[in-house]
Simulated scan of single mutants.
Amino acid sequence: MYYEEEPYLPTHPTNMALSERYWLSSKGVSIYVNETNPLFLDQNNYRDNYLCLIAKNKAPYRHRDSVQLNYELGVFLDPKTAHQYMVKTHLGKPTGRPDKRMIQHPIWSTWARYKANVTDKIVETYADEIIANKFNNSQIEIDDKWETCYGSAVFDPIKFPNVTALVQRLKQKGFRVTLWIHPFINRGCEPAYSFALRNNYFAKNLDGRVEMSWWQGAEAATIDFTNPKAVKWWVDRLKFLQKLGIDSFKFDAGEVSWLPQVANFSGSLDMQPGIFTKAYVQTLATNFNDYIEIRVGWRSQELPIFVRMIDKDSRWTWNNGLPTLITTLLQMNLNGYVYVLPDMIGGNGYLDGSLNGTEYPPKELFIRWLQANVFMPSLQYSFVPWDYDKEVKNLKNSF
């Protein structure tokens, strides 16, 4: 892997949703860098086969008067002993377990199969297919484009004319219902955007600006999860969705690279900007139940919730394809995140990289993906076995 002075924080361009400052070698040598240092990672750049750790005053970190690189070097007889020591002294362990049903039975998501084309009829038809094909469920998850606009936290009344009735029917069919949530509000999504802006609920940069962009919004802003008033307002809106019958949530994003740069938060300067990710995840774990899922982490290994892998592509290759299920799982585990939720079985099926186009994974790729996932903590379908043939559908009887 190649990195050229990459800021070592939860960032999306390099898929570093988890970026714990811990390295372990097969010879039993460990490195741990203090979380307060403005750390950059340089790998196979200055020198081949070398890891270079750099601390400097440079974005996305805020300027500080004194720059230090504080690290701990451990030398042990073997990597197992080294890792056990790191777990005990730095990484810690989860304080409990996530929801058992998410481990016992599959999660069913609308995302890969339908992308943003969700409606109440599509969701219910999907649920009926799952039942007709005699599959169990832990929950069914309604993904992107359920809102009137991104960040409104209000169901689109055309797509979902009666949410309460839909949820009740799904529960009668034996499903729990979860909803995709993100921490952004698009400019023009009213009245949410203006209300949050007026009350200083958005994360700001050093110039006081809130503008940022994300994959579904060229002009948007991010909720400041270090602001207790902003957190209460944002959480209350989700609690209202739960009053409609929504059981839990799939939380997306949370990396500091989605913030206006250079981000400026209250609290310790030395912990910025990583404090944003930690505050975001802590908010979710504290205010919602144990069958949420998140996709980021920064010093949050103690939380007993599922952490989802970043979207995988429907490929055989090492370029974010099938083999990277294994490496991602191992990396997350080594960094102390043991409750790993693999992404959709078969990958996301992006057509030419588009968020809206769908290309189904080939049958063999789907089968191999499913076989790998069976040995991981949880199964998550979007593409389904009956999209193929009886052979794939009957595979569940062999596990």
Rank of each mutant, 00 (worst) to 15 (best):
T222D: 08
S300F: 07
E302A: 15
F251H: 03
F225T: 03
V256N: 04
L284N: 08
A221E: 01
N199E: 05
S266M: 13
W234E: 08
F202K: 02
L303V: 15
I294V: 10
R295T: 11
P260D: 00
F202M: 02
A279M: 04
Q282S: 11
G245R: 03
F288P: 02
S248T: 06
K232R: 13
Y291D: 12
K229S: 13
I305W: 05
A253F: 04
K312T: 12
F265C: 12
N200R: 11
G217H: 01
G245H: 02
K239G: 14
L241F: 09
L197R: 03
F195A: 10
N264L: 11
N264T: 14
F288T: 07
R308P: 11
D236H: 11
F276K: 03
M271D: 15
F251S: 08
R295C: 11
I275T: 10
I305R: 14
D311F: 10
G297L: 10
I305V: 11
P273R: 00
G245I: 14
D224I: 01
V235T: 06
L259I: 10
Y291T: 04
S300Q: 09
F225M: 13
N205D: 14
Q261R: 12
L269C: 03
M212G: 08
I305E: 01
G274I: 07
D252Q: 11
A285K: 04
G245C: 12
D270L: 08
L206R: 09
W215M: 01
A279W: 00
P273D: 06
A285M: 09
V296F: 08
